[in-house]
Design a protein around this nucleic acid. Structure first.
Length: 803
RNA sequence: GGGCGCGUAGCUCAGCGGGAGAGCGCCCGCUUCACACGCGGGAGGUCGCUGGUUCAAUCCCAGCCGCGCCCACCA
């Protein structure tokens, strides 16, 4: 064993062993209590990024910990087909060949997508393996594999049969770049600089005008009304009369509606139901038509009269010129406001009224709201529960159809007589009229429609499989806050709807890791760091440790220091093992007797309890911290140093006891740093199990009394180091002191006077406090007593160094 | 506009009612027979600002200032 621990090679070897020996495999016929985590299925288009690596580390800690504790632990992997994201990737790749998807045609395009997945689909799983993620890789699923697709079809038909899913014409978010609708959750509101145009709409009877403010003059060609607030005194007389939309020349009514903001602009709103969400709602309320003057291509449509075929900016230029001519353009001013952009392509969203498939959410979501309210599903951090609740309580209909080629095609067939047949498999004839000329809906489903089924479709649903029976409901979902609405909330309501039970009882929202400069880590900003390079450089154990250590709060800046700390911890363990393992003989029983031996076992008990609490609370950062100090401070600096003289003297008993303590230390560290601990474990002569992965230590419990035993030595050492004077110690204490502090090698500062000064200050402070009546009267007794004890101690320390 | 979180040592972060902490970095000293990815010693902080509650406030409350994120149909 070399002094420098090199993870390269060691880690890969253990990953192979664990997988080959089936340690990751969970079985439905295994009767032990289950513990189930589902891996958020990464997109096939991704490589592993920092968020994946952190999340996999969190989940792996949990799954390994439970496996060690004897659970039938299942952590299931897979990929998401990422409909819109993968299609975008494929379109870009085709463009590089000078092709469009239309050149290929739908079937060939979809085949290309499948081929892409065959070629690149293994990458992330390979990266997860290199991180040591102990997923049951044999159970790999894909959201478009045969069984999963069947589940998606069943889901759609189920929702349609219950009336939640329907086809309807409503205002949608149209992304011109994706040439598809997107859901509300896929729209980012981004501040942009715009111009607000104040335009006069003359009254039809020539008695004056109303001024409205708009940032999009071309939409006035689609105006069907002007709306004012019913209580707005300025416009009270106008309600019910007509105005003329300039340029378009159309007469439209003035209507009153409370949704109009009196304080914005002039308080009068032009109503364009075809191109604005609020206007659309006003239009539906007041029974107004919904002319569409802007088309899917972003250009003016036939309904735009003389402007037909123009781009919006050309039309805007012309319209403004006309208004100026006619003296109807009152003013133009700079205006900054938030505008919807597609979070995939970055294009400005075009609100349009289109015929799409919708899922009515309000009723569906009620059981999920109840489950969150009564704590059946908890989250960490806890406030995320409220964030999700406020989303669910204000939920709107979900547009589930996409005008894409890659994805689950909507299982609806239309016949020439205008009937629709909804079925899990392609029907041979129309269910209404029997006509055999059926045409399937061209659209595919929102990717997240299928993701909602992940916790049970991966176990075989809709078939009643043994896995489904055994492993549903699961336990934990670990993910980023960014997909709590898109994914987590949908799994909860879908699980309740289809399985009649929640999919998991706890959600861990891990920290978001920012770039060192505080910006988001992203490829496009060039701020991303590839976790694979960290693994190559520092090892998987160090990377896992570092990511967990730095992920203490909601957002955290990446610092390589945490990973280097992990590397040092692995190295430290490696070296203390070399110390203890040299000359180790098998078959010698550990018999803790000396005070430092009882003490380290008591420390192991205590830190184990702390670490268990941290793991259970998904507080991996504090677990890592506790383990680090246990290893460096307690185990190496104090315990190992204190028994060195006995080891050097060939005390086999001391060595056997130390190896037993090391065994426990390794087991506690194993969930976080599996490889180095397993490697060292394999060298232990009397290890309890062949592989570490099968054991979680029982607390010793015998030696709690010894916990305080080293405190005196600790303090004596501190005083000695500062002052050069050694307080009185008993024999055991002196022995440990000599072993750890090694006075013959220390040149202590010998600054007795400074130490006396320090102690005198402390004593004065304590005396002041205890002389304060209000403190003694009002403070809890234990606080006052603690002050008294401290005062005593400082006095005796001062005494010990001759104050 | 609504919500969440964060401002503590040069950096990344713990601590969250009774003596300011860790890791890294920095300075000094050590090739000490496990480990220089180490050991020992040390410097460095009006705990964002202002009020309030309390015997006591980095910690609780209120208000500011600065930063990050999520949600949002004021055109």
């Amino acid at each position: 064993m070399e002094p420098l621990y090199r993870p390269q090679g060691v880690e890969e070897r253990w990953q192979g062993t664990w997988e080959d020996e089936g340690l990751y495999a969970a079985h439905a016929d295994d009767a032990r209590e289950t513990f189930v985590i589902c891996l958020p299925p990464p997109n096939v288009t991704d490589r592993l990024h920092m968020g994946h690596a952190l999340n996999a580390s969190c989940q792996d800690v949990l799954i390994r910990w439970h496996r060690m504790r004897g659970f039938n632990a299942l952590w299931q992997p897979g990929y998401d087909h990422a409909s819109i994201a993968l299609q975008a990737v494929m379109v870009r790749r085709l463009a590089a060949e000078g092709l469009t998807r239309q050149d290929l045609g739908r079937d060939a395009f979809v085949e290309r997508c499948f081929a892409f997945i065959r070629d690149y689909g293994g990458q992330i799983m390979g990266q997860l393996r290199s991180l040591g993620a102990s997923l049951d890789y044999r159970r790999h699923r894909f959201t478009m594999d045969e069984g999963y697709t069947r589940a998606v079809m069943r889901f759609f038909v189920h929702l349609a049969e219950k009336g939640y899913v329907y086809r309807g014409t409503r205002i949608v978010n149209w992304c011109p770049g994706c040439a598809s609708t997107v859901s509300d959750l896929e729209v980012d509101h981004i501040e942009v600089d715009d111009t607000l145009n104040w335009i006069r709409y003359p009254l039809a009877d020539g008695s004056g005008h109303v001024t409205i403010a708009t940032v999009r003059p071309p939409t006035m060609l689609g105006d069907v009304a002007v709306a004012v607030h019913p209580a707005d005194e300025r416009y009270r007389d106008l309600v019910g009369r007509e105005v003329i939309v300039p340029v378009a020349g159309r007469r439209v009514p003035v209507i009153a509606d409370e949704r109009v903001e009196r304080g914005f602009g002039t308080g009068a709103l032009k109503v364009t139901p075809g191109h604005d969400p609020l206007d659309w709602e006003l239009g539906r309320t007041h029974g107004l038509p919904e002319p569409m003057v802007i088309g899917l291509d972003g250009r003016m449509t036939d309904e735009a009269g003389e402007f037909t075929g123009m781009t919006q900016s050309d039309a805007e230029e012309l319209i403004l010129a006309r208004l100026k001519e006619q003296g109807l353009l009152e003013k133009r001013e700079h205006y900054r406001h938030a505008v919807g952009h597609c979070n995939r392509s970055g294009d400005r969203i075009e609100p349009l009224v289109l015929l799409q498939w919708w899922c009515e959410m309000e009723e569906l979501v009620q059981p999920a709201i109840a489950a969150l309210r009564d704590g059946r599903v908890r989250s960490k951090p806890g406030q995320q529960t409220n964030v999700m609740l406020s989303y669910l309580e204000n939920i709107r209909p979900w547009c589930v159809s996409r005008q894409l080629w890659w994805g689950h095609r909507i299982p609806v067939w239309y016949c020439p007589n205008g009937h629709e047949t909804i079925a899990e498999r392609a029907p041979s004839a129309c269910a209404s009229c029997g006509n055999g000329e059926l045409r399937q809906d061209e659209d595919v489903l929102d990717t997240w429609f299928s993701s909602a089924l992940w916790p049970f479709a991966t176990l075989g649903w809709p078939d009643p499989t043994p896995d489904l029976d055994r492993f549903y409901p699961g336990d934990v979902c670990s993910t980023g806050r960014d997909i709590n609405f898109l994914w987590v909330s949908r799994m909860i309501w879908a699980g309740l709807e289809l399985m009649g039970d929640i999919p998991f009882s706890a959600v861990n929202y891990h920290a978001m890791i920012l770039a060192p400069d505080g910006r988001r880590m992203s490829k496009s900003l060039g701020t991303g760091i590839d976790p694979t390079t960290l693994i190559d450089e520092h090892g998987a154990d160090a990377t896992r440790y570092g990511l967990l250590k730095m992920s203490s709060s909601q957002d955290v800046r990446f610092s390589v220091g945490a990973i280097e700390e992990g590397r040092k911890l692995a190295n430290k363990l490696w070296n203390v093992s070399r110390l203890l393992l040299s000359d180790a003989d098998p078959g010698i029983e550990a018999r803790p007797a000396a005070v430092e031996e009882r003490w380290i076992l008591a420390r192991l008990d205590r830190v184990q309890a702390e670490v268990e609490d941290h793991f259970a609370a998904f507080d991996f950062a504090h677990a890592a911290q506790a383990l680090y100090h246990l290893t460096f401070g307690d185990f190496c600096s104090w315990y190992a140093e204190s028994i060195k003289p006995r080891l050097a003297a060939g005390d086999a008993q001391a060595r056997a006891t130390a190896l037993a303590a090391l065994e426990r230390l390794l087991a506690l560290l194993h969930p976080v740093m599996p490889h180095v601990t397993e490697e060292i474990w394999s060298h232990l002569p009397d290890r309890q199990t062949r592989l570490i992965v099968a054991l979680w230590p029982q607390p010793d419990g015998r030696f709690a009394e010894a916990e305080a035993a080293l405190d005196r030595v600790h303090e004596a050492a501190a005083i000695f180091r500062r002052s050069g004077v050694l307080p009185a110690l008993d024999r055991d204490e002196k022995r440990i002191f000599d072993a750890v502090v090694r006075p013959e090698r220390q040149r202590a500062n010998g600054n007795v006077e400074a130490e006396r000064g320090r102690l005198r200050e402390e004593i004065a402070r304590g005396e002041r406090m205890l002389a304060n009546d209000r403190f003694v009267r009002n403070a809890p007794a234990e606080v006052v007593n603690a002050e008294r004890t401290k005062l005593e101690r400082y006095r005796s320390e001062l005494d010990a160094i001759g104050g």
